[in-house]
Nucleic acid binder design. Structure first.
Length: 227
DNA sequence: GCGACAG
DNA sequence: ATCTTGTCGC
């Protein structure tokens, strides 16, 4: 059943992993490369119908989280979903939406992992490198590694470990909310990623505000396209 | 060998 | 991701 078992995809997968490795060598994750002060934060998310990808990008002020601008893009979904190669499916629509924004955010939240990836280069890193902006990966559950259980308090966190490597952090952004997986994408370190994630999350919500809004917008784009 | 596997 | 109602809990 998994699409990855199709032997015709093996060459495609091989080429994608090679391209991923080339991009990874351009990836840097240092706290110093984040804007200071941080004035805007962005978010991107993608929804799908049978054949198309609907990407929505938003920019909010920081730390007030007031709406600044947003944009969308629709593209044919070509690359299949393969765990570990999500970027080859989602980066094209995401980049198109980001490039139609009136202003680029100082930091971008991406729906998917960054460093917490089998080859340490998930969608968030991929997008961050190609746009050359600081990027943070936010995922609902780990792809690899094992995460501890953060205490049931807002801001509690526990490392996500792959053997001895701390690849990300399970973060309880609000009390009674299931933790989200935070990892460094591009031009940010893990500690900074966690702090900004908490600062961009409205009390009581699970995901940072830019991602919530982008999620709603992309789903609205999909709905409106069928009418 | 079998299963698991971001969106 | 998407298909889907009601329902349990703060």
């Amino acid at each position: 059943m998994p699409v990855t078992s199709d032997p015709r995809l093996l060459p495609v997968i091989r080429r994608a992993i090679a391209a991923q490795e080339r991009l990874r060598q351009r990836c840097i994750r240092e706290k110093a490369l984040i804007a200071d002060p941080l004035r805007t934060v962005g978010g991107v998310d993608v929804s799908y119908d049978e054949k198309r990808a609907f990407a929505a990008a938003v920019v909010l002020g920081f730390p007030d989280l007031e709406p600044c601008c947003h944009a969308g893009a629709v593209k044919k979904a070509v690359f299949p979903y393969i765990p570990g190669l999500l970027a080859f499916r989602e980066a094209p629509p995401v980049l198109a939406a980001m490039r139609s924004l009136a202003v680029m955010p100082d930091l971008l939240f991406v729906n998917g992992h960054g460093y917490a990836h089998p080859r340490r280069f998930g969608l968030a890193s991929h997008v961050g490198v190609l746009l050359d902006i600081p990027a943070v990966g936010i995922a609902r559950r780990p792809l690899i590694g094992t995460a501890g259980n953060p205490a049931n308090e807002s801001g509690a966190h526990a490392p996500i470990l792959d053997h001895d490597d701390v690849i990300g952090m399970a973060v309880r952004s609000s009390i009674h909310c299931r933790p989200v997986c935070v990892s460094a994408g591009h031009r940010v370190d893990l500690a900074t990623a966690v702090m900004v994630t908490l600062a961009a999350t409205v009390p009581g919500r699970r995901l940072p505000e830019p991602l919530r809004i982008a999620d709603a917008l992309s789903k609205k784009m999909r709905r409106d396209s069928t009418k």
